[in-house]
Amino acid sequence: MDLSLSTRTEGGRTVVEVGGEIDVYTAPKLREQLVELVNDGSYHLIVDMEGVDFLDSTGLGVLVGGLKRVRAHEGSLRLVCTQERILKIFRITGLTKVFPIHTSVAEAVAATD
């Protein structure tokens, strides 16, 4: 399965819905999408990972890169994820402390720092 990406605006935030597998082959597409959004002035991003079947360290690297970019503009990058096998990867790398992780897009949209 390849990577699918779609974006929409919800409550003043930009929601990036990701589906499929994020790995060394597909992660550059996600990176391009995040870079493009930030370049276009979207600094408050929500990455919805509920449709993600597989995530590896390359994907983590892209998300960290995205976070770095939005923070340079006082922005935010929130994740939506309830899948245990995906959450585990964030836990073992300590990235649960870096990303706010929400259980739904609505919760992420409502969240404030």
């Binding site: 590896d56 360290s57 390359t58 983590l60 073992i92 790398t93």
Partner: peptide, 17 residues
């Protein structure tokens, strides 16, 4: 350097698993 960082992160994941 980014590739190297990703490579290190990959090893970190393997070590954790």
């Amino acid at each position: 350097s980014l590739d190297v960082a990703e490579s290190e992160l990959g090893l970190a994941v393997i070590l954790g698993l």
